[in-house]
Design a protein around this nucleic acid. Sequence first.
DNA 1: TATTGTTATACTCTATAACTATA
DNA 2: TATAGTTATAGAGTATAACAATA
Lengths: 160, 160
Amino acid sequence: MDRELAVTVAAFRSVVSTLKRAKTHDLMATVAGMRIDQPEAQVLIHLLDSGDPRRVGAIAQALQVESPHVTRTVAKLERQGLVERVRDPDDGRAWRIGLTGQGGDVAQVCMRVNMELFETAMAGWVPQDRAELTRLLGRLSEDMLGILEARLDAPAGQRP
Amino acid sequence: MDRELAVTVAAFRSVVSTLKRAKTHDLMATVAGMRIDQPEAQVLIHLLDSGDPRRVGAIAQALQVESPHVTRTVAKLERQGLVERVRDPDDGRAWRIGLTGQGGDVAQVCMRVNMELFETAMAGWVPQDRAELTRLLGRLSEDMLGILEARLDAPAGQRP
DNA sequence: TATTGTTATACTCTATAACTATA
DNA sequence: TATAGTTATAGAGTATAACAATA
């Protein structure tokens, strides 16, 4: 058994637990003075860093959730005036979800708060280590998604 | 705004989503031929890599969840014959939860399947990159936990 | 007929509160 | 009275199934 890998996985499990648990989000939301729940924050952040209005299906895929979940979250954000939806000019079945002015501001705060936890954690790191982590994590997330997509698409019998 | 940090956080968000979503666990469980849900797998893995029987409270703390959650999960595992509990010899209020023989086997499978996703993702990586990721993630998880504990313990007024 | 999205419903995971028993 | 754990209950987050509308 690969001990090094086990350590990596354990570290990951720990950070995932930290990010998942309600207290972490509540703490961040309190600090930022927001009343935004986790799925709402995820959508806002995604819209912010994708830059332009996105379709519901695209958001769902990016966040790796099913579309009904996005539908509901977008509806809540819309009621709060944080996003607005317009018919997709190219496809009458679809909508484009975009940030309103206020939504953009809130999204900025969400992202900043989200980053701040990492920023503080890495405060004492040398720049090279930060850069390395960025590079390696980026690659890992890509590789992992690739594998998963491939397996989920494959018929059960073909699965390794 | 620190662009590099934003990329790190985004990559992390992606991996977290991947690991959280039901399909990922289902896929892994199917591959391993197990009928173990996520919280059960987490407890088994924790017991496996801590090596010896653990108290409910200790498991809860390690997994960053509340103890009632662990109580229920342990009860389910006990019914399946995967863990057993004995009174703590030093403290009559407490229990020690340990893996049974069968539980140990299942825990091994859980851990292997868990690692396999990472292993496959990093298959093409040079050894140095793997080692770096291990080192950096280990440090990140420690630093992050430290910050969070400090903040959750602090009275609301003192929070930064 | 296939695809985009919505509505309705149910399930999984986790948290909080109230309680029991030992220290 | 403080602490370890349990029982009971509630909530957040996500998934599945059935449907509507457009392509």
